[in-house]
C-alpha cells in the first residue's frame, strides 16, 4: 500500500498535466489549441536543453542549432522528397544527433562560460549556413508548404499527434534522467573532478549527453515545421536558443518537469501579451528579472522550499531523523 502511495506522490503531477492536455482542445477556442501545441513542442525543446543545463550543469546557448537541424531535416524531406512525416521524425533525431556529436565534441572540452560561448558560436555557425545556403535551405525565405499529412491535418488532430510524440519523448527522457547515466550527469554537475577519480571518463559522458540532448531538440524541431507549415533560419538563431534557457529558469531546472512548466508559462504569456502589445520582449525580460531575483530555482524551487510538496530527499531525511530519534553522532 505504501508503495501505491509513493507512486501516486511521484506521478500525480505529470498525470494531471496529461489529462488536462487531453481535455483542453474540447474546452478552449481554436487559437489556444495552437498555443498549447506550441507549448508542447517548445516544452520538449526546453526539456532536452535541461539535460545539459539542469542535469549536467553546463549552460548551452546554442541549443537552437539542433532544433533547427531537426526542423530543416523534416522540412526538406517533406517538401523536396515528399517523405511521410512519421519517417522524418527519427531521421531528424539522427541528423540533429550527428550535428551535436560533431559540434559537441569541441564544446565538452570546456566548462562554464567558455562552454556557453562555444555552444553559442556553433549555434550561430549553423544559423549562417542555413541562412546563406539558398539553393538547399531556401536561405532567409525558409521552406514553405510543409503540411502535415491528411490524417492529422486538422488543428486538433495535429495537437494530439504532438501530444503523443512529446509524451513518449518525455517518458524516455525521464527514464534517462533516473538511470545510472542520469545520475552520472548529476554527479558531473556536482563534482566533475571526483567523477574522474571514481573511474569515469567525464568528457565522454558529457559528449553522449550532449548528443542525446541534441537528438531530442531535433525531434522537437521536426514537430515544429508541419505545425507552422514552414521553417525559417530564425529557428537556429541565438534568440531562439534563449527560449529554453528562459523556460528552464522560470519552471526550475532541478525538477524534471520544470522546463515544461516553464514553457507553459512563457509561451502562454507570450501569446497572451502579444494580444495587447508588441512589447513582449519587455514583459519577458521583466519576468526573468523577477524570477531570478525573487525565486531562484524557478517555480519548482519555490514550491519545494515552501513545502507544498517537500522534495523526496528532504522528506526522507526528516523521516530518518524522526526514527533514529536524533543522530548518535554529535
Amino acid at each position: 500500500m505504501a508503495d501505491n502511495n509513493g507512486l501516486f506522490r511521484k506521478y500525480w503531477l505529470p498525470l494531471t498535466l496529461l489529462i488536462v492536455a487531453v481535455i483542453l482542445p474540447h474546452v478552449v477556442p481554436h487559437f489556444w489549441v495552437h498555443v498549447f501545441n506550441e507549448i508542447l513542442i517548445l516544452g520538449l525543446f526546453a526539456a532536452s536543453f535541461n539535460l545539459i543545463f539542469g542535469y549536467m550543469g553546463q549552460l548551452s546557448f546554442g541549443h537552437a542549432a539542433y532544433y533547427g537541424v531537426g526542423a530543416y531535416t523534416t522540412g526538406l524531406l517533406m517538401v523536396k522528397l515528399k517523405w511521410p512525416l512519421l519517417a522524418c521524425l527519427p531521421i531528424s533525431m539522427i541528423t540533429a544527433g550527428i550535428a551535436a556529436a560533431i559540434l559537441g565534441s569541441f564544446c565538452v572540452r570546456l566548462r562554464g562560460i567558455y562552454f556557453a560561448i562555444l555552444t553559442m558560436a556553433f549555434g550561430q555557425l549553423v544559423f549562417y549556413i542555413v541562412f546563406q545556403w539558398y539553393s538547399f535551405t531556401g536561405g532567409d525565405n525558409g521552406l514553405q508548404g510543409i503540411n502535415p499529412p491528411e490524417w492529422i491535418f486538422a488543428t486538433n488532430l495535429y495537437y494530439y499527434f504532438s501530444l503523443a510524440i512529446v509524451t513518449i519523448a518525455m517518458v524516455v527522457l525521464y527514464y534517462i534522467t533516473e538511470s545510472p547515466f542520469g545520475y552520472t550527469m548529476r554527479a558531473i554537475r556536482d563534482n566533475s573532478e571526483r567523477t574522474e577519480f571514481i573511474g569515469l571518463n567525464v568528457q565522454r559522458y558529457m559528449h553522449i549527453n550532449f548528443i542525446i540532448a541534441g537528438m531530442f531538440a531535433g525531434l522537437a524541431g521536426a514537430l515544429w515545421g508541419p505545425f507552422n507549415r514552414s521553417v525559417a533560419p530564425d529557428l537556429c538563431n541565438w534568440q531562439h536558443s534563449g527560449h529554453p534557457v528562459f523556460m528552464a529558469i522560470i519552471g526550475g531546472p532541478h525538477h524534471f518537469l520544470g522546463p515544461m512548466i516553464g514553457s507553459v508559462i512563457y509561451t502562454f504569456l507570450n501569446a497572451f501579451v502579444t494580444g495587447f502589445t508588441e512589447y513582449w520582449p519587455l514583459v519577458s525580460g521583466v519576468i526573468i528579472i523577477l524570477v531570478v531575483l525573487l525565486m531562484p530555482g524557478g517555480l519548482f524551487g519555490i514550491i519545494k522550499t515552501k513545502g507544498y510538496f517537500a522534495s523526496k530527499t528532504t522528506a526522507m531525511a526528516d523521516a530518518n531523523r524522526a526514527d533514529t530519534g536524533g543522530s548518535q553522532h554529535g
Partner: peptide
C-alpha cells in the same frame, strides 16, 4: 570531495555503479 547535492546513499551508489560499469545504462 563529494557530491554535495546528492544524498549519502546516492553518492556511494554512484561510485559503485561506476565500478560495475553500469553508468552507460540508460533505462
Amino acid at each position: 570531495n563529494i557530491y554535495p547535492k546528492l544524498t549519502t546513499y546516492e553518492n556511494v551508489r554512484q561510485s559503485i555503479l561506476a565500478q560495475k560499469k553500469k553508468t552507460l545504462n540508460f533505462f
